[in-house]
Structures are given as structure tokens and as C-alpha cells.
Design a protein around this nucleic acid. Sequence first.
RNA 1: GGUGGAGUCGCGUAGUGGCCGAGCGCGCACGCCUCGAAAGCGUGUGACGGUGCAAGCCGUCCGUGGGUUCAAAUCCCACCUCCACCGCCA
Length: 416
Amino acid sequence: MIDLRLVRDDPERIRDSQRARGDDPSAVDRLLAADTARREAVSSADTLRAESNTASKAIRSATPEERPALIERAKALKAQVQQAEAEQAAAEATLLEVHRAVPNVVDGGPAGGEDDFEVLREVGTRPTLENPRDHVELGTMLGAIDVDRGAKVSGSRFYFLTGPGALLELALLQLAMGQALAAGFIPVIPPAMVLPAAMEGTGFLGAHAAEVYRVDDHYLVGTSEVALAAFHADEILDGGSLPRRYAGFSPCFRREAGSYGKDTRGIIRVHQFDKVEMFAFVPPEDAVEEHQRLLAWEEQFLQVLELPYRVIDVAAGDLGSSAARKFDCEAWLPSQARWLELTSTSNCTTFQARRLNIRQRGEAGVAPVATLNGTLVAMPRAIVAILENHQQEDGSVVVPTALRPYLGGREVLEPA
RNA sequence: GGUGGAGUCGCGUAGUGGCCGAGCGCGCACGCCUCGAAAGCGUGUGACGGUGCAAGCCGUCCGUGGGUUCAAAUCCCACCUCCACCGCCA
């Protein structure tokens, strides 16, 4: 949720944000109206409650003769209080609904839709291959990826990682956690099933509801961001303990509804995968700087994997509702001669923290923290990028130097 | 899954309808004392919302949500969590 004080003080700024996202700016006016209505309802209910309390207290010290009349009066007041409280509850519910519907205020970055991103930089050298094999062909030759049996056992968009493929995932995990640990992150293995409150608090049940698997009373997380964000829900953190940085490793589940026909081949878009996610709780004034740090750690990891990539500044219309700004790192995909999103980092400012009620106690009192997230490594796509960019003419794949210690020293993966 | 017990203002506790709209101890903050400290003494001690330039005032909060009552931490109902034991299980 956005800061209501900002809405009251500078509504035009929120309207601008809505326009940049391609959303309706009049939502701001509905929010202002609901806010005013709520405050009026609270005031009148408070006044009545105070009267009712006073009337009730008078009964305690009243003489037996006075009592019946006083009780009658207290009863009448109570009825008024109940009426006013019902109105207050309705006004609060309306405000909450309108408030929750407004996405975060964008902070920098280009306006516009999916194609209006800005390329910030390109790093590394793209491989020059006559006829690059794609990751499915390479993965099959190496005995690393089995999409046919994935489909047989679990349906489309499922896969098996086998032999070197499975080892590659474990190697990536070790490398990623090692980097995170060195950077001061606390490694976490969070639950992959969460209660609705965690899903709602992180903003994954609104526009993304169709993307989420539900199992009985739980949701399967699409990213460990959900559990990591909710980790400190309803807590007041000591300001001196910030920043708090967590690196979560978990499976991620995505329905991929509405993505029919996109990335249907291979393991680029799947229903289940593992990921190491960075998550940071910081004072709001440090959020922009922290965002750059997360991006730098993402880039460091891609560089260590020796992958050619570019960084884009995602346009406002392509941001999630929680994000104020987002950068994506895209690796080169030789088989399709295009860029593929490998990692992504979002600054959610205080938006998630307000929903999840995560605050810090600082010198200025108690106030919401800022939350930020960033992918360190999403296993399938990292494997895709490694196979395709490090393949050789004969279908073998050179293992990036940094991964070799975790693969028993192997320098090259050879076709089986 | 079964049975029993418990959830109170940071921590520990008191509290079975109005004198608790929450006491005490610890912790913490400030002050006194002291050369300085400890001890001792005194004062204070949360969150949220409304209102006000402000000091302040008002309201809400005793696991959560309902209910009874003029009045609920206290009575009733449901749920959640934790602890103990039993059963089952990797």
C-alpha cells in the first residue's frame, strides 16, 4: 500500500505515476474520497464512544434510585455507538479496498509498456557460432535435461534435470550461496507453501492470482520472496539491525496461465523450478542505494558464469504492483538470437512493508521499512544460458571456471 | 489424530463482571546522590487511529473473531498458536 499522507499532500504525483503505468489516475480521487469518509466516520464514532463510556462509568457510583434512568440512557447511547461503529467499519473496509488497488508509486525509470524499457549497458561478448544448438538439444546430448520424460510424468512445462544437469543446479546453488554469504546475507530455506496473508501481503494475489497454485488452504509460492518478505510480518525491527539481508533457496511454482505459445520449447518457462533469491529490509532512505547493490550482486554472478548479458531499466507499465522500479538482467540466447531474462531486481519501497506491517524503530519513531528483492540465480534459465553460450562445435560445453570446483573439477561436459 | 494445560503493556508475572479502561518485578530512559561508578531513591516507559500550530485531549488494543451486559482481561461460542503426554510417521 502506498503512503496515505503522500496521497493527501501530493495527489498529482500519484496521478503521474498511474499515467506512467498506463493505469487510471482517477483512482487517486477515489482514494482521497474514501480517506476523508473514513476519518469522518472515525471521529463521530470516537465521540459517541467517549459519551457512552462516561455514561457507563456514572452508573457505578449511582444510588439505587438513580440507576434505572442512567442505565436507560446508557442503553440508548450504546445503540448509537453500534450504529456509528458499523458505519466506521464500512468506511474502513471501503478505504482498504481502494487503497490496496493502487499500485506502488513509480520512482524513476521509463514510462510506457513492456517494449519501452531502456537498455542501460551490455556486458561481455556474445559467442560466434555458425549454427548454435539450443539448450534442449545440448541438454539431451549431454544427458542433462529430459523434457520428454518430464512431459510424460508431469505434463507440459515439466522436466527432469539428470546427471550433469542435476549437478549443474547443485553447483549453481553452492556458488550462489557462497557469494551471498560473503556479501553478508543470511542463508534461508523458507517454506514453499504459505498462508493467504503472506501471498496478499507481497502483492501476488491481485493481478497475479491466475498465476498461483492453490493447495487446500495454502498457496505454492512463485518465488521465495513471498516467504522472505513475510518473515518479519507484524514485527517492529530495531533500526540498528538494518539492513537485514536474506538469501532464500526454494522451489518456485508458476501456473504460466496466459503464456500459451510463449517459450514452449525446453525449460525456459516451466511450472516448477528452484531459485536463490536475495531479499533486503532497509531504511526507506537507503532503498535506492540498496537496489543498486542488489543489481551489482546479480551482475557479479552473471560475470562469474562468463555469460554475455545486458541490463534494462523496466518501463513503468511492466512493473509489478509492488515495485517502484525494476532492473532486469538478460543473458544472450544464441539459439534464438535474442535476450532472455535471467534475473530481476525490484525496489518495493515501503509498499510491501505497509501491507505486511513491517516497521523499524528509529530515531524518528516507528515507521515502515523498505523491502527489495533480486534474483541471484534461477536454475533452469541459468543452465540454459550456460549450455548455449559455452557450447562448442561438437556439442560439448565448457564449464565456467567458477563452477568447476563444484563439479568435481570437470572443465568440459561431453556428450554421453 | 487424541487428551490435558496455557496464551496479559520488551521479558517475567498479578488479576474470576464496575476500587484493573490493567498492578508488581526486571529491563530501558532521565534525574538525584557520587570525584566517577555501583547500590539506593525519584520520575517516566508501547502500538494504532482521530483531533489540534503545539502542549495536549479523545478513542482502540489483555492470542484472533464473534456473543452476553449500561459495563468484560474477567462470562459464553468458534478459531489460531504454544507446552505436556499418547498414537502415527520420514
